[in-house]
Design a protein around this nucleic acid. Structure first.
Lengths: 230, 230
DNA sequence: TTTCTGAAAATGTGATCACAATATAAGAAT
DNA sequence: ATTCTTATATTGTGATCACATTTTCAGAAA
C-alpha cells in the first residue's frame, strides 16, 4: 500500500475535521490528482489526513452525492471511469448550465467586479506562460465562478461544480499528456460582452469557451486518453 | 419535543442503515414533508429511524451536499427557506436542465418505453381525479425521470433531482393551500413529440410543462405561501 | 502451470462514549 | 416588566471498537 499524496491545503482555524477532509479531497479530485478507476479506502484516507474514519466517511459520502466518487455494490469506493459518451455528456451539460448561469449573472455584475474578472484572466495567461498547469486550471475555474456567483440568488453553482468534479480525473490525465497548454479561450470576448451587458453574447462566449477548450478534444483524443487511464 | 413523523418507507432487505436513512429523509423532503425553516437534529432523526447518530449524520451530510438541507454556522441543521427570487431561479434551472435532458433522451427511447410513459401519465390523471396529491406528485416525477433516464450516459438526473429536492418544501405548502389540483400539463404534447422523434418539440413541451405547472404560480402567490411558511 | 481452497488481512458499517459548543430556561438585578 | 447572568440540558463532533463482509494470498490439488 503506497502512501497517499494529496495536494497541499491550508486548514483554516476552527474548521471541523470533517470539513477539512471534504474540502481537501474535493480539491484533490477537482484538479485531477486521482486517476479514473483509482480506489480509495476510508482508513487509508483517514491516515493520510491524520484523523479517524468517521469524518472521512462523511466526506466520502458527500463526494459520492455530487458524483465525484462512486460507492460500488461491493462497497468499494472508486474514482468513476469516464467513457467518451459520458465525457461528451458532461461537456454538453457544462455548456447548458454555465451559459445559463452566465446569462443570469450579467445584470448583477458591477464594473468593479468585471475589473476583478479581467485581473483573473490576466493571472490565467501568466500561469500558462509560466507553464504552471495546475495554477492555470484553478484560476480558470475562478474566472467562471466569479461570473456565475455574482447573481446573489444563484442556485446553479453547486451543480456546475459537480460537473467540474466529474471532469476532474480526466483533466489530470490530459495535463500529463499535453506538453504545453495552448490558450484557446473566449474570455476576452466574454468580458467585452459583460461590459456591454449583452446577455446573449455573454452566454454565447461562455458556451464557445467551454466547447473549444477542454470540450475541444475530439472523440479520438479522448478515447486515447481514456485507454491510457485504464 | 414532538415526535417526528416521516412518510412510510419500506426498507429493502440488505439495505444499510445509512442508505435507508438517506432514502427515507430524501423522500420525505422531496414530497414536502418538511416545511422551510424547520430544524432537525441528528439524535432526533436517529430516534425516529430507530438507529444511531453515525449513519444519520452521514445521510444529513449528503442531503446538504445536494441542497436539500443546510448546516448553519451554529451547526444547526435546517430546511432551507425559499425566497421568491430563489424560487424563480429554481424554476428556470429546472427548465434549462430538463429540456436539455429530454432532448438528449429522445433518440434512446423505444416505443415500448414510450408506452410505459403513457401509462404513467394515465396514473397521474387517475391520482388527480382521486384527489391523491402526494401520489400524483410522485407519479409526475416518475414521468419526467422515465424520460430523462432513457439516455444511458445521462448525467443530468442527479442534478435535476437536486433541484426537485430544493423545491420540495414549498411543494408541501402549496399542496396544503390548494383545495384541488388542477391539471395543467403538457404531457400529451411531450408524448406526441417523443413518438415523432422531434427533439425540439420534446424540449419545448417539457419546458412549457414546467413553466405552466408549478412554475406557473406567480410571484404574488409564492410570496403569500412563503409568508405563511415563516 | 493453472485452478481451487481456506486462512489471514483489510475494509465498510454502525453503535457508543467523552468532549466542546450551543441553546434553553430559571433566577437575580435593574 | 425587562435585561442580564448562570446553571442545566441539548446538540454536533470525532475517536474507538466490535462485527460482518470482502479481498488477498499462500498452499494444495489437478
Amino acid at each position: 500500500m503506497k502512501a497517499l499524496v494529496l495536494p497541499a491545503f491550508e486548514r483554516p482555524e476552527g474548521m471541523t475535521t470533517h470539513d477539512y477532509a471534504f474540502a481537501r479531497l474535493r480539491q484533490a479530485i477537482m484538479v485531477g490528482a486521482f486517476r479514473p478507476g483509482t480506489s480509495v479506502t476510508i482508513r487509508g484516507l483517514a491516515e493520510a489526513l491524520e484523523s479517524s474514519p468517521t469524518p472521512v466517511r462523511e466526506a466520502l459520502r458527500q463526494l459520492t452525492s455530487i458524483g465525484a466518487l462512486h460507492f460500488l455494490e461491493n462497497r468499494r469506493i472508486v474514482v468513476p471511469r469516464i467513457t467518451p459518451a459520458r465525457f461528451e455528456e458532461l461537456i454538453s451539460l457544462r455548456i447548458v448550465l454555465e451559459s445559463h448561469a452566465a446569462r443570469r449573472a450579467v445584470a448583477h455584475l458591477s464594473e468593479r467586479q468585471i475589473d476583478h474578472i479581467v485581473a483573473i484572466d490576466e493571472a490565467i495567461e501568466a500561469s500558462i506562460l509560466a507553464g504552471e498547469k495546475a495554477a492555470a486550471l484553478i484560476a480558470n475555474q475562478q474566472f467562471h465562478r466569479q461570473i456565475y456567483t455574482a447573481n446573489p440568488d444563484q442556485i446553479a453553482m453547486p451543480l456546475i461544480e459537480s460537473v467540474w468534479l466529474q471532469l476532474g480525473p480526466i483533466l489530470g490525465i490530459a495535463m500529463e499528456h499535453v506538453a504545453e497548454l495552448y490558450v484557446v479561450d473566449r474570455h476576452r470576448e466574454a468580458i467585452d460582452a459583460l461590459r456591454r451587458r449583452d446577455e446573449d453574447a455573454v452566454a454565447e462566449a461562455i458556451g464557445a469557451d467551454i466547447r473549444e477548450g477542454i470540450g475541444g478534444f475530439d472523440q479520438q483524443a479522448i478515447a486515447k486518453l481514456l485507454s491510457l487511464a485504464g
